[in-house]
C-alpha cells in the first residue's frame, strides 16, 4: 500500500458515495447513465469473486464489500426507486458493443486461462470502458449537473492515481501487471477530454455544457 493507491481508493469511494448521495438527496437520477452503473456493478461482481476464495486484508475485504454494495444500491435507485426520473431516452449507448468485445478479449488475453482469472480480466477491461455510456449521455444532452461532474472527476482522479501507484510499485516492488496497466491507461485517457472541460468550466463556477 502506498499513498497513491490509498488516495486512489478513497477517490473511488468518494465518487461512488457522491453519486449515491446526489440521487438520494435530489430524489432523482436525471443525467445519470443507468447503463454505466450496471456495467460498474458487473465489473465489481466479476472482479471481487475472490472474496470467496482468498483473504488479502481487512481493508481489502471491507472496500470490496462497500464498492459492491454501493454499486447495487445505485442500480436499485436508478431502475427501481427513482425509475420515473431515469433519462432512458438519452441513455441509448449500446452496451453489447462493449461487453461482447471485452468478453472476447478477456478470453484471448489473460494471465491464466481459469474461470476466476478470466472473469477478473473481463472486469479490468470492462471497467476501462464502463464510463462510456455516461459520457455518451452527457454528449447527447449537451450538459451535466455540477454534482455529476464532481462524480466523474473523482472517478478520473482515481484512475490517474492508480497509474502513479503502478509506477511506484514498479520501482519499489518490481510489481508489473500489463493487463491492469494497459486498461488503466486507456481508462485514464477516456477522462482527459472531461478533465479539460471540468477545469475550464466547472472549477470556474460554470455549469458543464457542451457547444451544440
Amino acid at each position: 500500500m502506498n499513498i497513491f493507491r490509498l488516495a486512489g481508493d478513497l477517490s473511488h469511494l468518494a465518487a461512488i458515495i457522491i453519486l449515491l448521495l446526489k440521487i438520494w438527496k435530489t430524489r432523482s437520477c436525471a443525467g445519470i447513465s443507468g447503463k454505466s452503473q450496471i456495467l460498474f456493478a458487473l465489473v465489481f461482481t466479476t472482479r471481487y469473486l475472490d472474496l470467496l476464495t482468498s483473504f488479502i486484508s481487512l481493508y481489502n475485504t471491507f472496500m470490496k464489500v462497500v464498492y459492491i454494495g454501493c454499486a447495487y444500491a445505485t442500480v436499485y435507485l436508478i431502475y427501481m426507486k427513482f425509475k420515473a426520473t431515469y433519462d432512458g431516452n438519452h441513455d441509448t449507448f449500446r452496451v453489447e458493443f462493449l461487453v461482447v468485445p471485452v468478453g472476447g478479449l478477456a478470453f484471448l488475453v489473460n494471465h491464466d486461462f481459469s474461470p476466476l482469472e478470466i472473469l477478473w480480466t473481463f472486469s479490468i477491461y470492462l471497467e476501462s470502458v464502463a464510463i462510456l455510456p455516461q459520457l455518451f449521455l452527457i454528449s447527447k444532452t449537451g450538459e451535466a449537473e455540477t454534482i455529476t461532474t464532481h462524480y466523474l472527476f473523482c472517478l478520473g482522479v482515481y484512475r490517474a492515481l492508480y497509474l502513479f501507484n503502478w509506477i511506484w510499485r514498479f520501482y519499489f516492488e518490481g510489481f508489473f501487471d500489463m493487463i491492469a496497466i494497459v486498461a488503466g491507461v486507456v481508462q485514464t485517457i477516456l477522462y482527459c477530454d472531461f478533465f479539460y472541460l471540468y477545469v475550464t468550466k466547472v472549477l470556474k463556477g460554470k455549469k458543464l455544457s457542451l457547444p451544440a
Binding site: 481508493d9 475472490d50 476464495t53 482469472e117 477478473w120 501507484n165
Partner: peptide, 10 residues
C-alpha cells in the same frame, strides 16, 4: 479453488 494470481488491488 484458489487463484494462482493474487490480485491485491481494488
Amino acid at each position: 479453488y484458489a487463484l494462482k494470481i493474487p490480485h491485491d488491488e481494488l
